[in-house]
């Protein structure tokens, strides 16, 4: 029993940490700019593809990863500029970002094929905890994810830039009145969030593998998590990404792998029915 519990704790934590990076950015973008960024999953896969491409052509691994993250950041700027003219039009924001996400997915599909790519783990080896083998890469990813999430939370709640971000997310017009350059905050949040997603993609590609289809998958996980955590609530998404991670792992352990996706989706829908604002959300 202890074994099973340990397994659930360890595996759930890693999955939760990676999706937390994706979902927190997604939530942050929504909170600040009220943009539901469907292209967020694209940032997740693009960094991994760029890094994979550079590594295969012989570039230094760390430089490749940095380049991948930079591309994700650029994608954030792209989303910002594409949504800027239609920001007031909710329908068009959804449609433009969704189209961008699929455009990128198709470009990857045409150029790399539908089979997955993976990045060789930077940290090798396995640790054994009470008969449970955990790869060091998973441990590293978990630590990196937690460190990133905690620092993100600290930046938002403690620094002056964070305060400006918070002010903008509470009321962007009021923020503008007190002299905050709202547009700069928007760009900053877009870039930062996209880089976080890109970082998650890099970690994911080392533990698992990434295919063009993974971008939609990442997006759906981000959806599920922010719905659970409440739209626009950063801490809500961080907490709920771990909840989603655990739902997934518990389902695999007790019900079988075939149910994993189904149960997660069903759980999300159920939560929406019972508490539509999510765990930490506020009704608008």
């Amino acid at each position: 029993m202890i074994d099973v519990l340990l397994k659930i704790i360890v595996f759930g934590a890693v999955v939760g940490g990676i999706w937390g990076l994706v979902a927190s950015g997604f939530s942050l973008i929504f909170g600040v700019s009220r943009i539901l960024n469907f292209a967020h999953g694209a940032a997740f896969v693009c960094s991994a593809y760029v890094a994979f491409m550079l590594i295969s052509s012989g570039v230094n691994v760390y430089a490749s990863i940095l380049a991948g993250l930079a591309v994700s950041g650029l994608l954030g700027i792209l989303v910002y500029s594409l949504t800027r003219p239609v920001r007031k039009n909710e329908v068009m924001v959804i449609i433009v970002t969704l189209a961008l996400a699929l455009l990128i997915q198709q470009i990857l599909l045409v150029n790399f094929g539908d089979r997955g790519i993976s990045i060789i783990p930077l940290v090798k080896g396995v640790v054994e905890l009470n008969n449970l083998k955990v790869t060091n890469m998973r441990v590293t990813s978990f630590i990196l994810a937690v460190v990133s999430l905690v620092s993100l939370d600290l930046v938002i709640s403690k620094t002056s830039i964070g305060k400006r971000i918070l002010a903008t997310s509470q009321d962007s017009e009021a923020a503008m009145l007190i002299g905050i350059d709202v547009e700069r905050i928007f760009i900053l949040v877009m870039v930062l969030s996209s880089i976080l997603a890109g970082f998650a993609g890099i970690l994911y590609a080392q533990i698992f593998a990434i295919s063009p289809e993974t971008s939609l998958r990442a997006l759906i996980y981000a959806f599920a998590i922010v719905i659970l955590g409440g739209l626009g609530s950063l801490r809500g998404s961080i907490v709920s990404s771990f909840i989603v991670g655990y739902i997934l792992v518990v389902t695999i352990t007790f019900l079988g792998a075939r149910w994993s996706e189904f149960v997660m989706l069903l759980a999300i829908v159920t939560i929406l029915v019972v508490k539509p604002t999510g765990l930490f959300g506020v009704e608008e």
């Binding site: 595996f11 698992f208 593998a209 289809e213 997934l248 695999i252 079988g256 792998a257 075939r258 996706e261």
Partner: peptide, 8 residues
């Protein structure tokens, strides 16, 4: 049995 896109 594992669903499409399964990774764990």
């Amino acid at each position: 049995r594992v669903p499409r896109g399964y990774s764990e």
